[in-house]
Design a protein around this nucleic acid. Structure first.
Length: 774
DNA sequence: GAGCACTGC
């Protein structure tokens, strides 16, 4: 409804004067009645025209005054026999949970919280793990915002979907309501909220998406940003936006919730907002450092795990490593050594579990199995060890961990704006990360953390905080979003950590080439359309342009496949068979086309009624990722339909079926093109930035052309381009004439090659022109 | 002839 041009217009009337008047009326009622805090007399003050809670019943809430709730008052309402929000009798489970809730550290400070909340627009809340902040604070707000009186919602954002879903479920139980009614959640692909919803958990990215169509976030009376210390891209942008919105909307309250470390940074960023700190509930963790730096951290890690097993009392171990390969390797080594230990020194049994994101969920679940029993009655106790990436640092909590082994490294995304390459690099972790890792040992009882670096290194070499994502990313997508969000002046957009000017410039340049921004940096129609899609700008532009190439159905499929993790499965023990299977789908001219073939085969088998899990397994394809591509496709298709982007195909028998698709790829990816150094060479040079690259060995392109378009640049042992498709250079000049304006090219092989091609095309056109009647 | 930290729309 609101295009980005009419921002600010709708505000005055949408906020609702009648809601204000209602609020005032209620305040008068309350003030007039001396019994205003007695919920049981509340109905005597009612004017009888149903401005009460959701149903027609007497609720203790009727005596509440917005932004004046006290902890005692709220507690009394919570103790009522009837649910104050629904009028239904409270269940026994409700009262059981209530007892547990009142035991949480945060409960003691409910009044203190409310006092602060009443007196400020923005509040910084610091609570360590186990404080109960994520579940309780939104409920404290609920009892103070009284959403039923003004129809506005309370939002609580989470960086991850699972968290949004599980916390919403928990809070629905705590409030004794059905999930999706008074309490709901909203994540990509799933909106479980309804007309009654008052409290909504959501991912930070989802709130950002929403705000693209509601620049003032006018649906909400309070927005709680949880886990703000994680500094996701979405949280950083939301913080800056909310800072702006707060100035326009005095009725909007904001709570920023974070773990301890950088609370002051949040405070000073939000105009010295007041701070409330609540202690957590964890057990002490003893920290050990190595006296000398370790040369080989993998070896040291394996050794430490075995030593714990040999000498420390019962309790499970968590070892942090950086990636799949390293983890599988460590698991093998630990298992072998433990077998020796059992034979030689009667050690207890030990089960080793790998844990990383690309592991299928069923395998991930295994980490929750119990530690093994002693090998014989009265024998040494069994133990489990989990060897994990950073996923166990934030996303997954495992109870029962007593020992943590921390070599001090993780893979981190790095962005180099000069070469425009994002890559993963094994880097030292931050102090905050190290602390978080250590904390994983103290969730159920006192624990120990073995850091495989010296205390001096911890103090002197580790940075305080991991750099926020916004400083480590290509910002093309972000800049497009900001433009759509109505942020006019990017340079003065008040981000907590402003990215390097060069990164901004690169993003603007990229968007300008993609015609999403005009030369003045204004959003174009294409740019506005592109921002509607949850895609990187190049993919969005490719999708929007695809009808011009008569293949939007196919490009839609390809874009979806490129938006999910790889659909190819290649188990270590069946690589050859997996590769052979992949060859069945291979298209000699391009990996994009191979992906499409696999997808079409998948959909064909589905129509046949095959058992798809089995079919995928047999064809070494990932059922999970193909299904999620299907999901993405449906979402993108809906967006295309709402914006009248037509879905068309070239008939499959037409000889141009694949050519059209290959040409359409260039509409978005004309900047990701490489030219072969010389014929028969394996080395390519990327256009304009002259990087030397090789085609990734996973390719299905059998006879590479001199020119290829690629989906991504990966920097591993070598510089590779991955997912490549053969193209003809004359297409470049035709499809992206601005970017391929030869005057803008540095002198070199690429420029001369393109010049030759331009001349050839001109000659050919001249002949055609003179030869045909047209 | 390699690899894929994690997350999100």
């Amino acid at each position: 409804m609101a295009s980005h041009d009419d921002k600010g217009v709708k505000r005055s009337n949408m906020d609702g004067n009648d809601q204000d008047s209602k609020r005032i009326k209620r305040a008068e009622n309350g003030d007039a009645a001396p019994e205003k805090y007695n919920p049981y007399l509340a109905h005597l003050n009612e004017d009888g025209n149903g401005n009460g809670t959701n149903g027609d019943f007497e609720s203790p809430l009727d005596a509440f005054e917005r932004h004046k709730t006290t902890a005692a008052q709220a507690a009394q309402a919570e103790d009522s026999e009837l649910n104050p929000w629904t009028g239904q009798p409270h269940s026994q489970r409700y009262f059981d949970i209530l007892k547990v809730r009142r035991d949480l550290p945060v409960h003691k400070q409910r009044q203190e919280f409310l006092d602060m909340y009443h007196n400020t627009q923005i509040l910084v809340f610091v609570g360590e793990t186990g404080s109960g902040k994520t579940t309780q604070i939104p409920q404290y707000v609920l009892y103070d915002e009284l959403p039923h009186t003004n129809g506005k919602l309370i939002a609580c954002t989470q960086p991850r979907r699972v968290a949004a879903m599980s916390v919403a479920q928990r809070v629905a139980n705590e409030l004794d309501v059905e999930l999706g009614q008074e309490v709901g959640y909203s994540i990509r692909f799933e909106n479980r909220t309804g007309p009654k919803t008052m409290l909504k958990y959501m991912t930070d990215g989802q709130l950002l998406r929403e705000s693209m169509h509601d620049h003032d976030m006018s649906r909400y009376s309070c927005i709680i940003l949880d886990e703000a210390h994680e500094r996701t891209l979405a949280t950083d942008i939301l913080m800056a936006l909310l800072k702006q919105i707060a100035a326009r909307r005095s009725d909007l309250k904001i709570i920023v919730m974070s773990a301890t470390l950088d609370a002051q940074k949040f405070q000073s960023y939000f105009y010295n907002a007041p701070l409330l700190a609540v202690p957590g509930r964890t057990h002490p963790v003893e920290i050990f450092y190595t006296p000398e730096p370790e040369r080989d951290y993998l070896e040291a890690a394996v050794r430490t795990v075995l030593q714990i097993h040999a000498t420390e009392p019962e309790g499970d171990i968590l070892l942090f490593l950086t990636g799949e390969e390293e983890i599988e390797d460590a698991c093998r080594r630990i298992s072998l050594e433990v077998d020796d230990m059992i034979r030689e020194s009667d050690a207890g049994p030990m089960k080793v579990y790998p844990l990383y994101g690309t592991l299928p969920p069923a395998h991930q679940q295994r980490i929750f199995e119990k530690a093994p029993e002693p090998l014989r009655k009265g024998g040494r106790p069994g133990r489990k060890v989990i060897v994990s990436t950073n996923i166990a640092e934030t996303s997954l909590t495992i109870d029962g961990i007593v020992y943590v082994v921390d070599p001090g490294f993780s893979k981190q995304k790095i962005y180099n704006p000069r070469s425009r390459v994002e890559s993963l690099l094994v880097s030292p972790i931050s102090k905050a990360s190290a602390q978080q890792r250590a904390g994983r040992a103290g969730r159920t009882r006192p624990g120990k953390c073995f850091r495989l670096y010296t205390e001096k290194a911890f103090k002197k070499e580790l940075i305080e905080q991991t750099y926020p994502e916004i400083l480590r990313s290509n910002l093309a997508n972000t800049v497009l979003e900001l433009k759509k969000l109505g942020v006019e002046d990017l340079v003065h957009f008040d981000l907590m950590d402003p990215p390097a000017p060069e990164t901004m410039m690169r993003a603007l340049e990229e968007l300008n080439y993609l015609a999403c921004l005009d030369d003045d940096g204004e959003l174009t129609r294409l740019g506005g359309l592109a921002s509607e899609f949850p895609l990187d700008p190049a993919l969005a532009v490719m999708l929007i342009s695809s009808p011009e190439f008569y293949c939007s159905n196919e490009i839609l499929s390809i874009v979806s496949l490129l938006s999910v993790p790889s659909i190819w499965v290649r188990p270590n023990n069946a690589r050859k068979r997996a590769d052979e299977m992949k060859m069945q789908f291979a298209h000699p001219d391009g990996d994009h086309l191979t992906l499409l073939n696999a997808y079409h085969a998948f959909k064909g088998a589905e129509t046949n009624g095959d058992d798809m899990k089995r079919w995928c397994h047999e064809h070494f394809l990932s059922y999970r990722h193909l299904s999620s591509a299907d999901n993405v496709r449906a979402q993108l298709k809906r967006i295309m339909e709402t914006h009248d982007i037509s879905l068309v195909s070239t008939p499959f028998q037409d000889k141009n079926y694949y050519t059209n698709i290959r040409r359409a790829l260039l509409a978005g990816f004309f900047m990701q093109v490489a030219m072969r150094e010389s014929s028969n060479s394996k080395v390519y040079k990327t256009v304009k930035d002259d990087q030397l690259v090789m085609i990734h060995p996973s390719t299905s392109v059998t006879s590479p052309y001199d020119w290829v378009v690629y989906n991504e640049f990966v920097l591993t042992t070598k510089q590779y381009v991955r997912t490549v498709t053969n193209i003809r250079p004359e297409w470049l000049l035709e499809i992206a004439p601005v970017y391929y304006d030869l005057d803008t090219f540095e002198k070199g092989e690429i420029k001369s090659a393109l010049t030759r091609i331009t001349d050839k095309v001109k000659r050919r056109q001249a002949i055609k022109g003179s030869g045909s009647a047209r």
